[in-house]
């Protein structure tokens, strides 16, 4: 199945990735090349095969994720976390407007 420029634009919008016109052309071509190579896997018979996500390390079947106890561990220096934010206001992460008041 060939990837069109429209498919590229759709995937980019899902990924919240802004692309230039040149990048759209480039990635459309490269996605076709790479997916063309990948399409060979369709010839493999996978009837009755379980996806590998059900196997833990060592090959043992693992149907659940190991959980640790649900206990809160306070982080000692929250300022360090806040300090990494690109925009901070009154100890809160500042984001651009989400809703347009005109609408």
């Amino acid at each position: 199945m060939a990837v069109t420029k429209k498919d590229t634009e759709y995937a980019a919008s899902l990924a919240r990735l802004g692309l230039s016109e040149e990048e759209k052309e480039l990635f459309t071509g490269q996605l076709n090349d790479i997916l063309g190579y990948i399409d060979a896997i369709n010839s493999v018979d996978t009837k009755d095969v379980l996806p590998a996500v059900f196997y833990g390390p060592g090959g043992a079947k693992a149907f659940s994720t190991p959980m640790r106890e649900d206990a809160a561990v306070p982080f000692k220096e929250p300022k360090k976390i806040l300090g990494a934010a690109p925009r901070l206001e009154d100890n809160m992460f500042r984001v651009p407007k989400i809703l347009d008041p005109e609408e």
Binding site: A11, I34, V49, P51, A52
Partner: peptide, 26 residues
């Protein structure tokens, strides 16, 4: 990101990601 998003997107998930995970088992 583009390959991954495309392969996981609705309509392609079974053909790519699920298929790949099954071959990984093989």
């Amino acid at each position: 990101i583009m390959i991954g998003t495309y392969a996981l997107s609705s309509g392609y998930y079974d053909a790519y990601y699920l298929k790949a995970q099954k071959i990984r088992t093989i």
